[in-house]
């Protein structure tokens, strides 16, 4: 065996090993593994922001408690119910496509998409009220965290809605089946991440004092 064939052989082994590694690490997670890397990265970013909020508050407890009282707990709670329900709709959509029911899948996902729209509408009303009261990110440390965290999360809701919309279009065209629905599971995983991040954000910013 010459040196070149040994080199090619070891390259083949490396490619096979990488493929095996990817296969083993992909088979369990619902959806595309690449999106899961993104999900874990987003969780890390939000986690750092949540902890930064909590430690900043530790040095400004009175200011944070006083500012927190100006937030609408009702709209925060309604938005939590809206996102939880939309996540449930997404679960039903994934279940439908696993049974090969494309049209039913599209219906459930459309319901989730509409609830995403409700979430955004409520958030816009909430932001408008704050801006009308002269509150901005530079008002104080609490409002800086409140506006930046909720806006950052809102951008993820928007991104999730774009993903859901593209899945709905493809599902309506019969692009998914009981055997091939990785795209649906991928979009669903992202939407559930948006949901559980809000589930932490809501009590942290609106309730706990």
């Amino acid at each position: 065996m010459d040196a070149q064939s040994v080199k090619i052989g070891s390259a083949d082994i490396a490619v096979t090993a990488r493929a095996d590694f990817q296969k083993n690490h992909q088979k369990d997670l619902p959806g595309d593994f690449a999106l899961w890397i993104f999900i874990f990265a987003e969780m890390l970013v939000f986690g750092v922001l949540f902890v930064a909020y909590a430690f900043t508050r530790a040095n400004n407890v009175a200011l944070f408690n006083e500012s927190q009282l100006t937030l609408s707990r009702t709209s925060g709670a309604i938005n939590t119910l809206v996102l939880i329900t939309s996540s449930y709709f997404v679960v039903r959509g994934v279940d439908a496509i696993k049974r090969g029911l494309s049209s039913q899948c599209a219906h459930w996902l459309t319901g989730a998409l509409l609830l995403g729209g409700v979430f955004i509408s409520i958030k816009i009303v909430e932001f408008h009220a704050k801006f009308a009261a002269g509150i901005t990110m530079s008002s104080n440390a609490f409002y800086m965290f409140y506006l930046s965290l909720t806006f950052f999360h809102l951008m993820h809701v928007l991104m999730g809605m774009v993903i859901l919309a593209s899945i709905i279009v493809k599902a309506r065209r019969g692009g998914y089946s009981a055997q091939n629905h990785t795209g649906v599971e991928t979009g669903a995983s992202f939407w559930h991440m948006v949901d559980f991040l809000w589930i932490i954000l809501f009590p942290l910013i609106y309730i706990i004092r």
Partner: peptide
């Protein structure tokens, strides 16, 4: 209590809705 509820809810979403 509130923090525990939030973490339990998030874990439920991950385990049962995300199907992890």
């Amino acid at each position: 209590t509130l923090l525990a509820i939030a973490m339990i809810k998030s874990q439920m979403v991950a385990n049962y809705l995300m199907a992890l």
